[in-house]
Nucleic acid binder design. Structure first.
Lengths: 177, 177
DNA sequence: TAAAACTTTCAGGAATTTTTGAAAAGATGC
DNA sequence: GCATCTTTTCAAAAATTCCTGAAAGTTTTA
């Protein structure tokens, strides 16, 4: 495959993935472009490459900065701003997790905690089922939250080495399906 | 909080969460309703509770069945169909992971593999940066995929016990930030 | 101070996604 | 076969999300 095609394909694929994960397609495409570009880019260059308007470029660049995935840079002697993305994928992954945890997991945990304290007849099967479901969700979401907390505080090597051990121990024990 | 309010709040919250994760709001709400309801429900009841049309209810129920999160049931002597959701949250989590892995992770891994084999001057910094980024993504997405594979094949208890050990070993070693 | 270079905002419009509701299709029982 | 009850389909409408481009705002230079 030619480089230009590969680049195009990667940007499209990353955009499509983003849209399956609640992230605006264009924001993901801008991110993809910055990820694979060695030097920083001006808004102008991004607009041209992705065929988007000035306003759109500006909005999504700000969003990326807000997510901690991109930064501005000023080049000496130049007036315009240049943008670049964090290239270390482990850092990127951690940053995404930090933000989504803050924006989505925390609020959900708060709601689960709130609604679990429903006052109603504990013998009513409807209430029972409700409390059971909410408690179950709280446990799993809470566990996931803890796990992600460990992850974002970890070094990449330690984290994957430890996961690897987990896989091994599974093989040894011969866990059933 | 009154039961009716808690129920309402839970359904709303679950719907909002879904929409942040690429899942249609109504589908998540129908799922929430089925999750907390002990007995199975007819389309009619779901339409009435959530204030949605027949077509909408039907569409989202089918989607839930397609995701393996809900099932149909026929009651003896009754003509209409009833619907219920898997209540075991561990099973639900695993099922969601199975589907998203199939629908999203796998296709992305395929694209990454494809575009990594770009033919271009290996000394061109643009090409270098591209290959580095794609390789890095491939590694991390691949690791995540493996981890999720272990998870969906695990018993809940084994999985969380092992994670717990992982956290502990971190504490002992005293990993730095 | 003013012009030039650039960034940000935002109202309106375009595009996309979701929902509706009526009609078609599919069961069931007589 | 036919009447009845139920589910499914799908074109059109509604709702939502996203994008544009011109105008306003900001910073720099002279």
């Amino acid at each position: 495959m030619q480089f230009a095609d590969a680049k195009e394909k990667f940007i499209q694929a990353w955009g499509a993935l983003g849209s399956h994960w609640g992230i605006n397609r264009t924001m993901a495409q801008v991110h993809a472009l910055l990820l694979i570009t060695p030097e920083s880019l001006s808004a102008e260059e991004i607009m041209k490459t992705l065929n988007i308007s000035r306003g759109n470029a500006n909005m999504n660049l700000r969003a990326l900065i807000d997510w901690g995935l991109a930064s501005k840079e000023h080049k000496a002697g130049e007036r315009r701003e240049y943008f670049y993305a964090e290239k270390d994928i482990w850092q990127v992954a951690k940053q995404v997790i930090i933000e989504r945890r803050k924006r989505e997991l925390k609020p959900v945990l708060r709601v689960l905690d709130e609604v679990r304290q429903v006052d109603g007849d504990p013998n009513d099967p409807e209430v029972q089922s409700f409390v059971e479901t909410v408690t179950g969700l709280q446990k799993i979401v809470g566990q996931a939250d803890q796990f992600l907390d460990v992850m974002v505080k970890s070094e990449r090597k330690w984290f994957f080495d430890t996961l690897l051990q987990m896989f091994k121990s599974k093989a040894e024990v011969g866990m059933k399906e």
